[in-house]
C-alpha cells in the first residue's frame, strides 16, 4: 500500500534518499520495512542530525555495528574508529542533504544542523514505535544499518501530493556549476 500520512510519505522519501546514497557507494543493500529488533553489538557507531522548517522539525539517526560503517566507507583500508564516526556523520549529512533537496520540490525548505556522532560499546535505541517516529533500516551483507526518522509536524501542514515545477528545483547530487 502506498504511504498516506505526512510521516509515512516523508519517511518514504528519506528511505529513497538512503537507498540512492548506498547504491552510489557501490554497496548492495536491501531496505527492511517495519521495525527491527535492536541488535546489541559491541562496538556501535551512531550519528544523528537535526533539521527544521516553519512546518516541521525532526532528526535522522543512523546506528549499527562499526563494521557496517566500515563496509560503507569509501576508503576502507585506512579507517580507524574515529574515521568511522566521522563517516557515519557524513552519511547522515548526505542522506538528510538529499532529503532537503527533494523536499524543495514540495515547497518545503529545511535548515540543517551539524551531525554529531557517538562511539560506544553498546548503543540502545528504543525500538517501540511512537507517533512521528519511523524506522528506515537496511540490510548490508549480514549486518543491519538501523535508521530512525523522528518528526514533529505543525498541525494543519499537508505535504503536497506531488512535487511541483512551480517550486525551486535543487541542483542534483554530483552536479557541478561554474559562476
Amino acid at each position: 500500500m502506498p504511504p498516506t500520512s505526512n510521516e509515512e510519505r516523508l519517511a518514504e522519501i528519506l528511505s529513497q534518499c538512503m537507498a540512492e546514497l548506498i547504491a552510489e557507494l557501490g554497496i548492495a543493500a536491501k531496505h527492511i520495512p517495519g521495525v527491527q529488533p535492536h541488535l546489541a553489538t559491541h562496538g556501535s557507531t551512531t550519528a544523528f542530525s537535526g533539521f527544521g522548517s516553519g512546518d516541521l522539525r525532526g532528526s535522522f539517526t543512523l546506528t549499527g555495528p562499526s563494521a557496517v560503517f566500515s563496509r560503507l566507507h569509501p576508503l576502507p583500508p585506512t579507517v580507524t574508529l574515529r574515521d568511522l564516526a566521522d563517516w557515519a556523520c557524513e552519511l547522515v549529512n548526505q542522506a538528510t542533504g538529499r532529503f532537503r533537496n527533494r523536499l524543495l520540490a514540495y515547497g518545503v525548505r529545511l535548515a540543517m544542523g551539524v551531525p554529531q556522532s557517538v562511539l560506544s560499546d553498546e548503543v540502545r535505541l528504543s525500538s517501540s514505535l511512537r507517533p512521528g517516529r519511523s524506522p528506515i533500516s537496511f540490510a548490508v551483507d549480514d549486518m543491519i544499518l538501523e535508521g530512525w526518522l523522528e518528526l514533529e509536524i505543525k498541525p494543519g501542514f499537508q505535504l503536497p501530493e506531488n512535487p511541483s515545477a512551480e517550486n525551486a528545483e535543487a541542483l542534483k547530487e554530483g552536479s557541478l556549476v561554474f559562476f
Binding site: N93, R98, R100, N101, M112, A168, E169, A170, K172
Partner: peptide
C-alpha cells in the same frame, strides 16, 4: 562542495 543544492544558497 556541499550536499545542498538549494538555488537560494547557490
Amino acid at each position: 562542495l556541499t550536499t545542498d543544492g538549494s538555488p537560494d544558497l547557490i
